[in-house]
């Protein structure tokens, strides 16, 4: 007879696997308080909170942080519009070429980031488009569309078509139906998709290195510190900030969709 209880070995392996996924990140928090500046010595010789103040006063951190927030915000808005439209088209109708369009939508995240990055870069150079904040946004919006699309299309498929017809029968036009019926039903799915897209964009580094020119986003700033470290604990503080800015939207997205049948974040 097959028992329904998990064997101790399975419990141990599953627990160890989860620990493997989480412990490394916790270490970043510890290292932000270390008094050791020149190496990654463990255990830290002493603990201090001075690095948070020093990071706050470092002037080279603020412009990348602001740029990253700007790019993520605009890319998210673009992805929300384009992803919702695509979801609206794909959820209910059947048409020629639908499978190809589905493939086109996932391609930007199915292919490695380095491919997207160099493809955009060679297109920019062929067309003589100068690198700017907008070239960064262009790249980010492209791979954020599918995140919003996934969330929106799952909700739309679940939504009964009858309530849209009922709304039309009661005399509402398309805009009224959208405003009063569709939007309230889609709301949390779009919000969740938007937050995931924001987190993805804020953290993106591979495509950005190809589309950014002279500007630095926060991940690019961090990458430079990783390659040529100076004042390591300050990088730790920035790492905590980046971690929190990505994790908080993810947790919110999870809370927003927990009651539905589909949960945000099932696929990146």
């Amino acid at each position: 007879m097959l028992s329904d209880r998990a064997s101790p070995g399975l419990k141990l392996a599953a627990g160890a696997g989860l620990a493997f996924l989480h412990l490394p990140i916790l270490l970043i928090f510890l290292y932000a308080f270390t008094t050791e500046e020149k190496s990654y010595a463990f255990p830290p010789p002493g603990l201090t909170t001075q690095w948070f103040g020093i990071a706050w006063n470092r002037e080279d951190i603020w412009p990348p942080l602001i740029l990253s927030l700007q790019v993520a915000a605009i890319a998210t808005v673009l992805a929300l519009i384009l992803g919702t439209l695509a979801a609206g088209a794909m959820a209910r109708s059947r048409f020629f070429g639908q499978n190809q369009i589905a493939l086109l939508l996932i391609l930007p995240i199915a292919l490695p980031g380095v491919v997207t990055g160099i493809a955009l870069r060679s297109a920019f150079s062929m067309l003589d488009i100068p690198y700017s904040t907008w070239t960064i946004i262009l790249g980010h919006a492209t791979f954020c569309i599918v995140i919003v699309f996934n969330n929106a299309v799952a909700r739309m498929r679940r939504l009964s078509g009858a309530i849209l017809e009922a709304s039309a029968d009661l005399g509402a036009n398309a805009f009224q139906t959208f405003r009063h019926i569709l939007l309230p039903n889609l709301g949390t799915a779009l919000l969740a998709g938007g937050m995931l897209a924001f987190a993805l964009s804020f953290d993106e580094v591979i495509v950005t290195t190809f589309t950014a020119g002279q500007q630095s986003t926060l991940p690019i700033w961090m990458l430079e510190e990783l390659v040529r470290p100076h004042q390591r604990p300050v990088t730790n503080v920035v790492a905590i900030v980046v971690f929190l800015v990505t994790v908080i939207p993810i947790l919110l997205a999870y809370r927003l969709t927990i009651r539905g049948t589909e949960i945000a974040g099932g696929g990146k």
Binding site: F42, L200, V205, A239
Partner: peptide, 28 residues
Amino acid sequence: YLGVMLPLWSSYLVKVYAWKLILAKEGI
């Protein structure tokens, strides 16, 4: 679910950085 989703979505660079701390010669 959260235990898998959080590491999946949390910052890629921060994760790589954490491993630099772990694997360094003087590290944990």
